[in-house]
Amino acid sequence: MALLEVRNVSKDFGGLRAIDHLDFHVEEGEIVSVIGPNGAGKTTLFNLITGLFQPDDGEIIFDGHNLVGLRPDQITKLGIARTFQTVRLFFNMSVLENAMVGQHCRTRSGVIDTILSLPRQRQEEERIRQKAIEALSFFGTRLVGFRLHQPAFVLSYANRRRLEIARAMATEAKLLLLDEPTAGMNPRETLELTELIGRLRDEKGFTIVVIEHDMRVVKGVSDRVVVLDYGRKIAEGTYDEVAHNERVLEAYLGRKAVRSA
């Protein structure tokens, strides 16, 4: 059975159909890229899966649970974590704290445990800390060491994107949704991240869906590519299959011709 299954989902925004009867699935251990021209509904798809929006129609099944009607935090707890296209960190919290927030849904200490400083709570804090550092260490030395206690707003753009991924990793999700993880990175950083996405699956066992514009990244990471246009799936397959699909070329080139005019 697929880990994530989007069945016949639609979403309207005031008459504008952002997602149109979409069927889409992700197998466990897969890296799937979602591509498509601007406004094709990629981010909306993520927002639907993570519960930020509710679909008008259809169901989303993750790991045997129907996600429709659940709140975002419940969905995260079931094992889906995401990053945002416009980096959205907790900028005034430290790098470490940002990652520690990711552990929130895996831990239980409440107000009273904390005030009484119960041993269980202290152990849990320690574990949260370790898990967070573990997630941050995935990016080598970039986010650890003296950076741990710096507020997130001092980070460079690329590091902000990395921290966002680390925060998502810290939720111990099964499925990571990465929304344009390389946007705004320079070519070197992009390459590095492409490799990291592969390692996220191979070493850490995440299943990954990534929205990406950079075709080199898509080519580098994807087991399978799904192409959206106007909220519909117009093609699906390996990178090479999709890259030669006529409808895909049309969707991109058609737009491109308009854009360059």
């Binding site: 045997g64 659940l70 419940q74």
Partner: peptide
């Protein structure tokens, strides 16, 4: 990580 029906229900009923 299968949840029982009652757990799912209680999650869905918003307090």
């Amino acid at each position: 990580m299968q949840q029982t029906l009652s757990q799912q229900l209680s999650e869905r009923v918003n307090f």
